[in-house]
Design a protein around this nucleic acid. Structure first.
Length: 529
DNA sequence: TCCTGTTGTCATCCT
DNA sequence: AAAGGATGACAACAG
């Protein structure tokens, strides 16, 4: 019956779960946007895909390895040149990269291990010897081997290897050189300032080798360089840009709120905590002063892929990674369905309108966040409310078990999920109830129409019955008016009646006999019953 | 200020 | 047994 009603109402699993579909679509859209961001905003931000792209490029160039090698080596030389100065001045605090497959060494191993590419270092050396430009700018035996040994960035190589992307590469190289030169000239964007970009000096001084430092550099330094170059392109004041990466009370220059304990965060401190987002765009932040809280904000609104990575880090790395990633990604997918989509230029708000957005967002964001979002934020839960609610239960449980969460965090996460599920259920329930009411109203209206129709039909029938009765009476009188008894007198209709036999013949019967026969018949019928 | 509709949440039952 | 869907009831809020 219920199923029938639901079918009648047009309910299906799809219509019931429209909220889930909505969020999925939203997330897919955001993923698409993030992917676009990676292409449009920061081409050097895709360390993992770099190796894939390089491999793809190698595959494409296996028929002409010389061409590829020339470009590859040239890029190594350029990158190494650019990195030498930077690493001398600022890499002591660079964070080691743990991302697999991102180093030149690993890429080189992959490259040499390609089955169709039987190339030795001697081959490469012979190629390099034929290339004056390379041999003059970089001593090949040393530089290539050093480069291979180092975890230097191949992001530059990726783009330079593509002629179409060379202009942007040149531009980025310019910015890099500007940074290097400014380090010498004492520019605000100096290498010492740049060194402040890399937190966790303790960790680095304790654990890092030069190679590790370079591997940390390959991602982080170019992220920051891209930020700076983007800011410069947008007409930012260099001092302001340099402040993007500085934390006033930080030893490393980018402490990313390391002084805040996870359990004692003062998120209401609007003077130092801001939201790099406008209404509904929780998770995206680019504000310079909001680095620490942005990490948190990004956590609350972060994507699943980032969650997995972040939650296995210690606090310092967590916030470092969060802040660096939030600069490049737009985490808008924990928006509630009624929140408006941010405009595309929103991704760049940090550089275009950061101060205005900052001041306005400080006052409005907390009010716009739901209770659960605020709770999640206060407990530094690194998942968005939307993710917590819409995630399948298997994934949800594995997420809880994989990540190191306190009991209170788990409790809050489960509460958020329960309330979120129930909220959706309540919405569906009310929608269903409303539809049931509407359908019942339709049924009532239809029944009213049917009743009126039946009443009209009944009136018509009774009218015709009365008409028939009238005709029968007239006929009766007419018959009796013509009947005569044996003496030729008229027959009294009150004493006689017409009786119709079973064979169709009609007899004139005295009423008393007719009545007695009728009584007998009724008695027989009663007995039979 | 009262009324009404909407929404979120809780408790409870059921699947 | 756990998870979650369904739903009545309540409270807060907005118009």
């Amino acid at each position: 019956m219920r199923q029938q009603q639901e079918d009648k109402l047009g309910y299906s699993d799809e219509s019931y779960n429209y909220n889930y579909l909505h969020s999925d679509n939203g997330k897919a859209k955001v993923d698409e946007e993030v992917a676009q961001d990676s292409e449009e905003v920061d081409h050097s931000n895709t360390g993992a895909s770099d190796s894939n792209n390089i491999r793809a490029e190698i595959d494409q160039n296996t028929t002409e390895p010389t061409l590829f090698f020339e470009e590859f080596i040239q890029l190594l030389a350029q990158t190494e040149n650019a990195l030498e100065d930077t690493s001398d001045n600022s890499l002591q605090s660079a964070e080691p990269s743990t991302r697999p497959g991102n180093s030149v060494g690993e890429l080189w191993q992959d490259f040499l291990s390609l089955p169709d590419l039987n190339i030795t270092l001697e081959d490469i050396q012979s190629i390099s010897n034929t290339n004056n430009a390379i041999s003059t700018s970089v001593p090949f035996n040393e530089s290539v081997n050093e480069a291979v040994g180092q975890d230097m960035s191949l992001q530059e190589a990726m783009f330079a290897s593509s002629p179409a992307a060379r202009s942007s590469e040149d531009h980025r190289q310019e910015n890099l050189l500007q940074l290097n030169s400014s380090a010498i000239s004492g520019d605000p964007l100096s290498a010492t300032n740049l060194s402040n970009l890399f937190p966790n000096t303790d960790n680095n001084s304790r654990n890092s080798t030069n190679q590790d430092l370079l591997s940390g550099l390959d991602e982080n330094v170019f992220d920051e360089i891209n930020l700076m170059s983007l800011a410069l392109e947008e007409g930012f004041d260099p001092l302001e840009v340099s402040q993007l990466f500085e934390e006033p009370d930080s030893d490393s220059g980018l402490s990313l709120n390391s002084s805040r304990s996870p359990t004692s965060a003062s998120i209401s401190d609007s003077s130092s905590i801001t939201f790099g987002e406008e209404e509904g765009a929780a998770g995206y932040s680019s504000d310079s002063e909001s680095t620490s809280y942005d990490g948190l904000e990004g956590a609350v609104g972060g994507s699943g892929s980032e969650i997995n990575k972040f939650c296995q880090m210690d606090d310092a790395n967590y916030y470092t990674e969060m802040s660096l990633h939030n600069v490049h990604h737009n985490h808008t997918y924990n928006q509630l369905p009624n929140h408006s989509e941010p405009s595309p230029e929103h991704h760049y708000s940090w550089s275009v309108k950061s101060s205005k957005v900052r001041s306005s967002c400080v006052n409005t964001m907390d009010k716009n966040l739901s209770r659960d979002e605020r709770r999640a934020k206060s407990l530094r839960i690194p998942f968005s409310v939307d993710e917590i609610v819409s995630m399948p239960v298997e994934m949800f449980n594995s997420m809880l078990s994989k990540h190191y969460l306190t009991e209170s965090q788990v409790s809050v996460i489960r509460d958020i999920r329960r309330r979120g599920k129930n909220k959706v259920a309540a919405q569906n329930c009310r929608k269903r109830k409303l539809d049931v009411i509407l359908n019942l109203e339709d049924d009532v209206n239809q029944l009213k129409v049917q009743k009126e129709k039946l009443l009209k039909e009944q009136a018509h029938c009774s009218k015709s019955v009365n008409h028939m009765k009238q005709k029968l009476n007239d006929l009766y009188r007419d018959v009796f008016s013509r009947l005569r008894d044996e003496q030729g007198r008229p027959v009294n209709p009150s004493q006689y009646a017409l009786h119709c036999n079973s064979d169709g013949s009609i007899m004139v019967v005295p009423r008393r006999l007719f009545k007695s026969e009728q009584k007998k018949d009724t008695q027989k019928e009663k007995k039979q019953k």
